[in-house]
Simulated scan of single mutants.
Amino acid sequence: MTTSAWVGERVRLRAREPEDWEAFLAFEEDSDAVRAAWRLHPPRSAAQAKKTMAEEAEQELDLDEFSLVIAGKQDNAPVGAIVTHDVQRHHGTFLYGISVGSRHHRKGYASEAIVLLLRYMFFERRFQKAEAWVYSYNDASLALHRRMGFVEEGRRRRSHYANGRYHDEVIFGMTMEEYTERYA
C-alpha cells in the first residue's frame, strides 16, 4: 500500500483545483472566520472567485512558500487552507497560517493539517522552527496552538485592526526538537 506524506487520518493536503472556487467563496460568507484568519474583504463575484482559483491552480508551487487546500480525506472536499510565508532560509524559520471553514471546526482538521505541514517543513526542507501569529481575539486558535505544544513567545501589541478595534498578535513557536518529541 502506498502512503503519502500529505495524508493523515482525517485530511489530505493538496494543491488548489479550479473547482474549489465554490467552497472557498462559501467560506468568505462567514465574516468572523475571515477576520480570525486575516482580514475582511468586500464580497467577490462568482466569476472573480472562479478566475482567481483557476489562476492559483495554474501557479507553480514553491517548495518553501505555498498555499495548500486542507481537504477531507474521504471526499477530497475543501475544509480550509494552510499556507507558509515569511520564510527565512538563512535562519531556518518560517511562519504559517491556517484557516478552516466554520462548519468544519472542532473536528481535528486543523491540528492534523499543522502536524503534516510541520513534518514536511522540518524533515524534508530542513527548517528548524515554525511560528504562528494568532490574533488575540481568536480563542479557538490560541487554544489549538497551546494544546499542540506551541510555546507562546511574545505579543505584538495593538498590531491588528478588525471589527472596529485594535488587537494584539500572540506569537507562538515550535522548534523541530519540540515537534519531534511530541509528534515523531
Rank of each mutant, 00 (worst) to 15 (best):
T3C: 12
D32S: 07
T180W: 15
V7A: 13
D168A: 09
M53L: 08
H90E: 08
A81K: 03
Y179S: 03
E131A: 10
E153F: 05
E153S: 13
F172I: 03
T2Q: 14
L25N: 08
E58Y: 02
T93H: 14
P78R: 04
R14P: 03
T180M: 07
N163P: 09
I70Y: 00
T180K: 11
I98P: 05
W21P: 00
L116E: 02
Y161G: 09
Y120I: 09
R158G: 15
R106F: 15
T3M: 13
N138G: 06
F94N: 02
T2L: 13
V11T: 00
V115C: 11
F94R: 07
E17C: 09
A113F: 05
R14F: 07
S4V: 10
I70N: 03
A47N: 07
H160L: 03
A5C: 11
A37D: 11
E22L: 02
R126E: 10
G173A: 10
H145F: 05
V134Y: 02
L144N: 07
S159H: 04
F122G: 03
A49E: 01
G80N: 01
E153G: 10
M121N: 02
L61T: 13
E124Y: 14
L63M: 01
R157G: 08
Y161H: 10
S159M: 05
D139V: 01
P43V: 03
M174H: 00
A49W: 00
E178Y: 12
G154N: 12
S99L: 05
L118H: 12
R119V: 04
A37Y: 15
Y120H: 14
E19A: 09
P42H: 10
F66Y: 10
S67W: 09
A37E: 12
Q74D: 15
Q48W: 11
R165Q: 15
F66K: 09
A23Y: 06
L142A: 05
H85P: 02
A23C: 01
Q88Y: 08
I82F: 00
A57L: 05
V115D: 00
L117K: 03
E177V: 14
G101R: 00
P42E: 12
D62I: 11
